[in-house]
Amino acid sequence: MAQASAPFLRIEGVSKSFGTFQAVRDVSLSIEKGEIFALLGGSGCGKTTLLRMLAGFEEPTAGRIYLDGQDMTGVPPWERPVHMMFQSYALFPHMTVEANIGYGLKHDRLTKAERRARVQAMLDLVQLTPFAQRKPHQISGGQRQRVALARALARQPKLLLLDEPLAALDKKLREHTQFELMSIQERTGVTFIVVTHDQEEAMTLADRIAVMDRGQVQQVGAPATVYENPATCFVANFLGTITQFPATVLSVDGPTARLAVPAMGSDVTATALPGMTPGETLTLGLRPEKVALLDDRPDGANVIEGQVKDLAYFGKDSLYRITLPGGGLLSVHAVNTRRGAENRPDWYDRVWLSFDPSSAILLRD
């Protein structure tokens, strides 16, 4: 039987302390070659410190990092097959786009012709050939981002680290650039690790996500897996929008469970967790897009009447906060499929809510 190949990047029990403060705590991750992997979390969660350890700018207090089978302990940044793209892009303002891209190649053992060919290949890759002789201040923010990316890729690293790469861009440009990044990564095959606090950015870009909190990894998985099946209340709250209510298990019948949810003023049917028992207390969560908002009472499980307390119109959809019989507030998204406001619920309207048992997220922490 053939042995499975080792992961391209292996992080084993890595911790990092600054005095008495532990920024990263016992992190272990395996990342495959050619992945776009996202480290997602809020400020101070340890994601950038972990990235800096991968780059060699910080040494772990404990643990090991292996890249393509090589132990990175004690290997300085300039000897690692790794390049880091900073949030500020760090372009030289007095140099042209072409010179910025080729700057890192000066110390490589390349002929002038090879350097020119490499720079031209990078210009073509990021579609900036017409702007080769411009200075950074003469191009847009999105183009500066691509210059920084081309410079990082010019040295043909095995691993590219991107620290909040799209934070300086406006919303529309950020959305466009996400797809450009994915396309460039697919064409080069370089492994990307992206640090971001933006959940939408992580879910769009990454093949897999590691959600971090207080120096620890809370959950790792594909974006859809982590979103639909969060392992903890923190992950459920951080990734997307969710309303959570305390609940008590009333009964378990095969794959389904009946729960008392006082804040909803109603019992709820949900897909049971393994080992669930009557009397157990846990948290029930509902994503706003999983709840149907209706004028008339529907048939089926989990039907609750409520009253519109707040609403916000976003154009393509609207967000409602519904007061429930038990006094709780439930957020609900409704897609605006028709023009005009006559068919949309308004403030203080009585409405019916329903959701499938499989849409209820049960959390034990």
Rank of each mutant, 00 (worst) to 15 (best):
S30C: 14
P165K: 00
T269N: 11
M53E: 13
P130G: 13
R287F: 02
C45V: 04
P255A: 06
M122K: 07
L330W: 08
E201P: 00
R214W: 05
P278R: 06
N302W: 01
L67V: 00
H333E: 01
E201D: 10
A341R: 06
G44F: 05
A260I: 00
T248D: 00
K172C: 09
D365E: 07
R118W: 03
P278F: 10
M53R: 05
D317Q: 14
L50G: 03
A167W: 03
K172P: 02
L125A: 08
V335H: 07
D267M: 02
R52L: 15
G34V: 06
F37M: 08
D267T: 12
I101F: 02
L250S: 15
D71V: 08
V97C: 02
T96P: 02
L353I: 14
E32W: 07
Q216K: 09
V195E: 10
L205I: 07
T196V: 08
V147F: 06
N343A: 11
L273P: 04
I139R: 04
I139V: 10
A132C: 04
G41I: 05
T96A: 05
Y348L: 15
V252D: 05
G56F: 10
V211T: 05
A210Y: 05
Y313T: 03
L286G: 09
L50K: 09
T256H: 12
G56P: 05
A263P: 08
I193G: 03
L39C: 10
D163R: 03
M212Q: 01
S17V: 09
A231Q: 12
G41L: 07
P246W: 04
S88W: 05
A168W: 00
D68G: 02
T277R: 12
D253L: 15
L110H: 04
N336Q: 06
N343Y: 10
D170F: 12
K106E: 14
M1E: 08
M95E: 02
A236H: 06
P345K: 00
L39P: 02
A38T: 07
A312I: 12
R174D: 07
V126N: 06
C45L: 02
F179L: 11
T271A: 15
F92P: 02
I322F: 09
M95K: 08
T20E: 14
K172Q: 15
T73I: 01
